[in-house]
């Protein structure tokens, strides 16, 4: 089970600095929530944890991200293998439109060379069960992934992410495009998944952070256009009851943001 340590991570989009000097440890088998107002750099930061940030043209980072002590930004590290170890679920459900439900789940394995149907079949079932979607889709695995509802599509994306058996699961506002019922199902799912994965979740919703996470990191920015900074991190119960910083208190009590 993997522990992630981010040391002095700063991130840029071209000339714009989005994240400034964040140092944060993410403990294994826990849910770590990143909260903060819009533009505070939490989504950018989570994308630096599996080298998804550099996919955007002109984006770069400084600092180091240690996965069990190994810097994923060291030279000679293949970003593709980093992403196989650290999976990601995005804000908007993004199933592959040309693939069936079954093929969506097995995409990560199939496109990395695993072709045998007999080996893929149990993986698909296990991943869909893991994502709490198996009962709803087992009769229509050959239907397109886009035929599902928004909440089901997001659970399909979670199934797709866990099918490659990553060590860490990053979730970038996984519920912000979903209705409350679907949100609740995803939250229950997160609680189940944390026994097996280290989970980092970005959320706008403070109640959600309080419900699902073990520790919480609060990010903010001074004024629009400034880079986002980490204000404090600690056990969720402490952050939400006795925050150490008045900006955190102002945010969680709803006085700004």
């Amino acid at each position: 089970m993997k522990r992630i340590e981010a040391n002095h991570v700063s991130a840029w989009y071209g000339g714009f600095k989005a994240v400034d000097d964040v140092t944060l440890a993410i403990e294994p088998k826990q849910v770590t929530a990143l909260i903060g107002p819009s533009g505070c750099g939490k989504s950018t930061f989570i994308r630096t944890l599996n080298r998804m940030h550099e996919v955007i043209p002109g984006a770069r980072i400084e600092g180091e991200v240690l996965l069990d002590g190994e810097d994923i930004y060291a030279s000679g590290i293949d970003p593709v293998s980093v992403r196989r170890t650290i999976g990601m679920v995005f804000q908007r459900p993004n199933p592959f439109p040309t693939m069936s439900i079954r093929d969506n789940v097995s995409a990560g394995l199939r496109l990395n060379g695993m072709r045998k149907k007999a080996e893929l079949e149990p993986v698909v079932e296990k991943a869909l069960q893991g994502a709490g979607l198996w009962k709803e889709v087992r009769d229509r695995l050959d239907k397109p992934g886009a035929s599902l509802s928004g909440g089901q599509q997001q659970r399909l994306c979670i199934a797709r992410a866990i099918a490659v058996e990553p060590q860490v699961l990053l979730m970038d506002e996984p519920c912000s495009a979903l209705d409350p019922v679907s949100t609740l199902r995803i939250e229950d799912l997160i609680a189940e998944l944390k026994d097996m994965y280290t989970i980092v979740i970005v959320t706008h919703n403070m109640q959600q952070a309080a419900r699902v996470s073990d520790s919480t990191a609060f990010f903010t920015l001074e004024v629009s256009g400034d880079p986002g900074r980490l204000v404090e991190v600690g056990p969720t119960s402490k952050i939400f009851t006795k925050p150490g910083d008045e900006r955190t208190e102002a945010y969680i009590t709803g006085r700004f943001g």
Partner: peptide, 13 residues
């Protein structure tokens, strides 16, 4: 959509 490319990259493809 860029989100489909990102989804693929995030699977280690």
């Amino acid at each position: 959509p860029a989100s489909l490319r990102e989804a693929a990259y995030a699977l280690g493809i």
